[in-house]
């Protein structure tokens, strides 16, 4: 068990370190992540959604369906816990 775990983390870690090397420099304002999609959010969020907090704007509007999914996840977890933990009645026991 432990051996397999260590083997897996060595493999994963190796891959991750291998991948880090060619990543865009950390915090580079011109990296693709910062220059392709997100600038439009920063520029337009206020105008289009009238919300000063860009995160809220994107969360609630541009990617509103993610948020809907997020709500559904919480709901799922809640209902799931009810389903699992509700005890059986009439002393049926486990």
């Amino acid at each position: 068990m432990k051996v397999i775990a260590i083997l897996i983390i060595v493999l994963t870690g190796g891959l991750l370190i291998y991948g880090v090397e060619e990543m865009p420099d950390w915090g580079d304002p011109n990296s693709p992540a910062s220059s392709h999609v997100s600038p439009k959010y920063i520029q337009e969020a206020l105008e289009k959604t009238a919300t000063p907090n860009m995160v809220t704007a994107v969360l609630g509007d541009y990617r509103g369906y993610d948020t809907m999914g997020e709500t559904a996840v919480i709901f799922t977890a809640g209902i799931g816990c009810i389903l699992m933990l509700r005890k059986k009645r009439k002393g049926e026991g486990d």
């Binding site: 291998y18 060619e22 990543m23 865009p24 992540a33 392709h36």
Partner: peptide
Amino acid sequence: YIITGSLNMLDVAQRLPEFYHSRVVLT
């Protein structure tokens, strides 16, 4: 996302080929 800056599948697919030899894409 870090390499293409996008999350849309088609957009990623379009922007990705130039990075195919990057280690990040491989990972």
